[in-house]
Amino acid sequence: MTNLISLAGLFLGALWALLKVIGLQAEKRANEKFEALHVSIGKLGDDLRREADAARQLETSFLRFQAELPRDYVRRDDFVQAVGGINTRIDNFALRMERALDNNRRGEHL
């Protein structure tokens, strides 16, 4: 009878030790997974910060573009206006020359 109780105690002790080892291994694996998750989340945070910085730089560039666009457009508009004035003067000069040549052909002098 004592042998049976001793054998049952040994079996329960071995079972307890086996469960303890299995529990420690499961805890170790869970800790490794949480550590890997922590590292991944840290990398994700760094990536998000870089993306936010890139978005801020893009927004700044766009705002600069918006500020420069009207100035460049006005310059372009002034250029078109100046070229239009020059073209008008050239056309007027050409008309005066044609009239003068027509008058010369007809024998009229200025």
Rank of each mutant, 00 (worst) to 15 (best):
L101K: 05
L110H: 12
F65R: 13
E98D: 06
K43R: 11
A100D: 13
E59N: 04
R49E: 02
A52E: 03
L110N: 10
D47C: 02
E27I: 06
G23C: 08
E32R: 12
D72Y: 15
D47S: 05
D72Q: 15
D72L: 15
T60Q: 10
E35S: 13
M97L: 09
E68S: 14
A55H: 10
Y73C: 03
T88N: 06
A67T: 12
K43Q: 09
E27S: 11
D91N: 14
G42W: 02
L37I: 06
R76D: 09
R75V: 07
E27W: 09
R96Q: 10
R75H: 08
D53I: 11
L48E: 04
R49A: 06
S61Y: 11
R106K: 10
E98M: 01
F11A: 15
R105D: 00
G13S: 15
D47K: 02
L15I: 14
A36Y: 07
A8R: 04
K20G: 02
E108L: 14
L95N: 10
H38L: 08
K20E: 01
V74K: 00
T60V: 07
R50D: 02
Q57M: 12
A17W: 05
L10Q: 11
A26D: 08
G9A: 13
E32N: 07
Y73A: 09
E108T: 08
E35W: 02
R76A: 14
G45Y: 12
R29A: 01
Q66L: 14
N3S: 09
K28S: 09
G85K: 01
D102W: 04
D72I: 15
G107M: 01
G107F: 01
I22C: 05
R71L: 13
R89W: 05
S40V: 09
F11D: 15
L4F: 08
D46I: 04
Q57A: 13
A55F: 08
T88W: 04
L44F: 07
V80A: 07
V80I: 10
S6R: 08
L4D: 07
